[in-house]
Every structure is written in structure tokens, then in C-alpha cells.
Computed example of a mutant assay.
Amino acid sequence: MAKTTSQHILNTAANLLGFCLFVITSLHIANMTENHLIDEFTSVIAVLLTCSCLFSFASLRTSDLEKERKLETIADYLFIISLVGILIIILLITLNFLK
């Protein structure tokens, strides 16, 4: 049964999507968007997390075992890429405040 990680990916990716939207909103409120690529990069990560949520949800809803595994694998890879992207965002924000 391939539905071992889809539930966790869906929940965690949705929470991290909220983090990305918070970062984008914070940068726009602080008027820091014209100098930084952080908001554009965060937007890309938000799209990847949304896609991860969609593939994970589709994996949970399908009854075909092979299709379920493929969808879960895609969701897993998108989630890992997004996690690395969030790490980069955090590093960029930290370096920006250290200046």
C-alpha cells in the first residue's frame, strides 16, 4: 500500500505553503520586494508546494495502485525540492538581516 507518506506530504506541504505566503506578504508589507529576489523565489516554492499537495491528494483519492505509487512519488520529489528551496529562502532572509 503506497498511501504511507501521501497523508503526511499533504499536511506538511499545506503548512509550508502557509509559511511561503507569510514570507511573501511580509516582504510586500515591508516594501522590500523591489531589491530582493526572495519573494519571486518564494513564489516558485509556493507553486511547487501546491503541486505537491495536488499530487498527494490525487494519490490518496485514486484506487489504482500503480497510479497511486506514481502520484505519490511525484508528490514526494516536489516536496523534497520545495524543502531545499525553503532552506535557501531561510538562508537568504538570514543573510539579508545580517547585512
Rank of each mutant, 00 (worst) to 15 (best):
M1I: 05
A2S: 09
K3D: 05
K3G: 05
T4L: 12
T5M: 15
T5A: 02
Q7E: 08
Q7V: 11
Q7T: 11
L10V: 13
N11G: 04
T12D: 12
A13W: 09
A13N: 12
N15Q: 15
N15A: 11
L17N: 10
L17W: 12
L21Q: 12
F22D: 03
V23G: 02
I24V: 13
T25I: 07
T25M: 11
T25H: 09
S26L: 10
H28S: 05
H28Q: 14
H28E: 13
I29Q: 10
A30S: 14
N31H: 08
N31M: 05
M32A: 09
T33V: 09
E34Q: 15
E34A: 03
E34N: 05
N35I: 09
N35D: 02
H36P: 00
H36M: 09
L37H: 10
I38S: 03
E40F: 01
E40D: 10
F41Q: 14
T42C: 02
T42V: 06
S43R: 11
S43L: 06
S43D: 04
V44G: 00
V44C: 00
V44H: 06
V44Q: 13
A46M: 02
L48N: 14
L48A: 04
L49M: 06
L49Y: 10
S52M: 07
C53F: 01
L54A: 02
L54I: 15
L54M: 07
L54H: 12
S56L: 11
F57H: 10
A58V: 06
A58Q: 14
A58S: 05
A58K: 12
A58H: 04
L60C: 08
L60D: 15
L60Y: 04
R61Y: 02
R61A: 14
R61H: 03
T62I: 07
S63W: 03
D64T: 06
D64V: 06
D64L: 02
L65F: 10
L65Y: 11
L65K: 14
E66H: 07
E66T: 12
K67F: 01
R69E: 13
K70H: 05
K70S: 08
E72K: 10
E72V: 03
T73G: 01
A75D: 00
A75C: 05
A75Q: 07
A75E: 01
D76N: 15
Y77P: 00
L78H: 03
L78N: 05
F79V: 03
F79C: 04
S82I: 07
S82K: 06
V84N: 02
G85C: 03
G85N: 08
I86R: 07
I86F: 08
I86L: 12
I88K: 14
I90R: 09
I90W: 11
I90Y: 10
L91D: 04
L92C: 13
L92K: 15
I93F: 08
N96Y: 10
F97W: 08
L98F: 09
L98I: 14
